[in-house]
Design a protein around this nucleic acid. Structure first.
Length: 477
RNA sequence: GACCCCUUCGUCUAGUGGUUAGGACUCAAGAUUUUCAUUCUUGCAACAGGGGUUCGAUUCCCCUAGGGGUCGCCA
């Protein structure tokens, strides 16, 4: 086996790309790039019951928009294909036969009810629930006869008794588990598909995977994999068990408590760079105080040694902050590109480019994702809804004087020049001898629909002469 | 329950056998701004507990506790 780094992302298409999977993808990709290795995408669709129709498309397209591109995989090819497990059934069959022939695996005819009952009894007796190997006692002839009779069966891996399986995890160091803890895992299901355990091990070996990055939840089944490699006479890859991403309440990140699909954040319009940056930092960090990393930075800086052991909480509040930081870095023009589709979808006419740019300038400081720009901008595209309280403010004599002043001076207002505009507005306060709230609230309420919001010059700039005057006239008595 | 993994502010984390235990988010206060947002400044806030080892432990070892994971013909 070569020393080449070959890593793989092996999602099962049971849903859209998950935040946890994204992080594994990021680490895989960064590790491959850093070590000039290869990053492979393999689809693990051995569970035919849980397939989600467009999951594979979503996984591939999401990885693409994230910018994590794979060197080998479905639709891309490579020397180790096919890269979809359902297309590799004959390969698995071959190794399963080998395991059976060598006595490392055996047929099991127990049905669900039998197994459920077995488990229930064991639990009642406070024993560890495990397959009791009753089918291991079946003779070759008996097995053959039942197969020919058409009985449904699975094939189980026979674990050795009382043997300590040890491996040197890249994150955790030495991990030891006694085989007595491990069940005789089903490796071939009755529908003819292999289980994860068999398929992943065979593929990782055949695809010459050097490092297996996966979630910590796999630690306890690693002995099965180690044993499988041993039975097949293969060398096991290096295991890299990553800490898990958790909900705020420290339960495993779940749909119930969080939006877990990357698609969701993409749809809301979180900057891709922010998603990458934030997710990469759950469980990994450089030695310094730096916390802004592009995907390229990650490829340069990433190292297994600095991956944390402890699980990390997904904190949407910090994601929001980080996303906002990325958005504030963008030019109005770039932000407009990103936000435009959301505005069009909302039915707003954004054909006035200058106005839209001014709207972006206003939204920029207030949002974490592009879709949020709508709620901070709709007042520039819709009729205003003014509260009774604010209507009372507008009705006051001084308010009416302020509005009248601007309407009458419409032609003298330096609309185009931000600085001049500011000076003009200030001068108005002096001339009318109305200042503070009394001066600014009627302006903001009439133009924006609320006493709190953007600067008055900004509002003038966004709305332009015609709309500004029109809005003022609407509330003039 | 058994086994495995983990444990620095509420959260993400840096860190060392001797540090005022550092940064970021959140929160609070102040500054800037006519208001809101942004920005800036300051502040609040942590080494899970108990034993060792040591001149000295947050750091090394052990135990306990707590959290998480696994115990499927799911991955």
């Amino acid at each position: 086996m070569s020393n080449q780094v070959r890593v793989r992302l092996a999602p099962s298409p049971t849903g859209y790309l998950h935040l946890g999977t994204l992080r594994v993808a990021l680490y895989n990709y960064a590790y491959a790039k850093k070590n000039k290795g290869s990053f492979i995408l393999r689809i693990e669709d051995t569970d035919q019951n849980r397939l989600v129709t467009d999951a594979v498309e979503n996984i591939i397209s999401t990885l693409k928009t994230i910018g994590v591109d794979f060197d080998e995989g479905p639709n891309k090819g490579g020397n180790f294909g096919p890269y979809v497990q359902s297309e590799r059934l004959d390969i698995y069959k071959k190794y399963i036969d080998e395991l059976v022939n060598k006595g490392f695996a055996y047929h099991c005819f127990c049905d669900k009810e039998t197994l459920d009952e077995m488990r229930a009894k064991q639990i009642a007796k406070k024993e560890d629930p495990k397959y009791d190997r009753r089918c291991l006692k079946l003779s070759k002839e008996e097995v053959q006869a039942r197969i020919e009779r058409g009985d449904s069966y699975v094939i189980r891996l026979r674990m050795p008794n009382d043997r300590v399986f040890a491996f040197d995890d890249a994150i955790r160091g030495l991990v030891e588990i006694n085989s007595n803890q491990v069940d005789d895992q089903v490796i071939l299901k009755s529908d003819g598909f292999p289980t994860y355990h068999l398929a992943a091990c065979v593929d990782d070996h055949l695809m010459e995977i050097s490092h297996v990055f996966r979630g910590e939840e796999w630690i306890s089944s690693t002995p099965k994999h180690l044993w499988l490699y041993e039975c097949l006479g293969w060398q096991a890859p290096k295991f890299v068990h990553l800490p898990l991403i958790m909900n705020t309440d420290h339960s495993k990140l779940s749909k119930r408590k969080n939006d877990v699909s990357v698609e969701n954040y993409l749809q809301k319009g979180y900057p891709v760079a922010a998603i990458i940056n934030y997710i990469a930092l759950i469980g990994w960090h450089t030695a310094d105080d730096r916390e802004f990393f592009s995907l390229e930075d990650l490829c340069q800086e990433f190292s297994l040694e600095r991956v944390n052991k402890a699980n990390g909480v997904f904190d949407i509040v910090k994601l929001n902050w980080m996303a906002g930081m990325y958005i504030r870095e963008m030019s109005d023009m770039d932000l407009a590109e990103k936000c435009r589709p959301y505005f069009i979808k909302a039915g707003y006419d954004v054909s006035d480019e200058n106005k839209f740019l001014a709207v972006m300038d206003n939204a920029k400081d207030r949002i974490s994702c592009y879709s949020e720009a709508i709620e901070h901008s709709k007042m520039f595209y819709e009729d205003l809804i003014i509260t009774e309280e604010d209507k009372e403010i507008l009705a006051q004599e001084e308010s009416q004087m302020v509005l009248k002043y601007f309407i009458e001076n419409a032609d003298n207002i330096p609309w185009g020049d931000k600085e001049e505009l500011g000076l003009f507005i200030k001068a108005g306060s002096k001339e009318l001898a109305i200042k503070g709230k009394k001066y600014f609230f009627p302006l903001r309420i009439s133009l924006f629909g609320s006493s709190h919001g953007p600067d008055i010059p900004k509002l003038f700039a966004i709305l332009g002469k015609e709309e500004t005057i029109k809005r003022m006239e609407t509330v003039l008595h």
